[in-house]
Amino acid sequence: MTTFFQLLIYGLQLGSVYALLALGYTMVYGIVGMINFAHGDFLMIGALSTVFLAMAFMNTSSAALSAIQVITIILIAMIGTGLIGVLVEAIAYKPLRDRPRMTALITAVGVSMFLQNFPRALPFIGPNPRPFPRLFPLVQLNLGGVTITSTQLIMLGLSIILMVILYFIVNKTPLGAQMRAVSMDKDAALLMGININVIISLTFFIGAALASSSGIFYASIYPQVDVYMGSWLGTKSFIAAVLGGIGDIRGAMLGGFILGISEIFATSINSNLGYMIGFIVLILILLFKPAGLLGKFSIEKV
């Protein structure tokens, strides 16, 4: 029983990273109708920029980072990555908005390669992994044989708070109503006086900022950062988004946690199974519930 709860905690910790990242996939897909394969690399940008921000803050104060500094770092990293997301959309995807979907998809693969290899080529970043600074204090709690660290608790708490805020924005605010309108019918939304460009930019901003936060959380538990870290996580989170039903925000959260927990439990049976489980789940879902767990089938208009 102790082992079960211990594994559950590892699963939740991994699942929250997948869930935050899957939200970006699902929002972009829901609103623009394209799969942004460069999304995983926003996670890397978030984590990498945090490393440099922390280095800059540590240089000035030399002591350990205070809570206010940590919050500032996280906010700057999230906003910065969000702006990079907006920039990527404006440069790479906007000119292709009326082209066939395949064009945007292939462009996304190209953007992903650029985002990985451009920092790699910069001399002050380079290909080698670098340590991630400790942002949250490390305290180990022992609850009846189950070890929980403060980092895990803070991470899990923050990611749930971020998800709740997002859910509230999308469902309860006028801005969210506009986003939902664009996702339902772009042309009709335009006729209703909604500025589509602003909404799409905002979607990319939120998606990239969430990816950045998941990068910070991910690097806090696995404290090692390199330029390729986003690609594999991006794939996993994409699976999570499809699993939950791509285009649905609750689905992305659910899919992320399901994937994280099943991966950890499968690994405890056999490490190869843990590696495969994401793909097994994906195949099963596509076979039996192609729209995902919470997704609704939409009829393609021809």
Partner: peptide
């Protein structure tokens, strides 16, 4: 003896717990 499948894996908690 605990294995993991490839360099993409970053979470060794399960193996290390055993």
């Amino acid at each position: 003896v605990q294995a993991y499948s490839g360099s993409d894996i970053k979470d060794y908690n399960v193996q290390l717990t055993k």
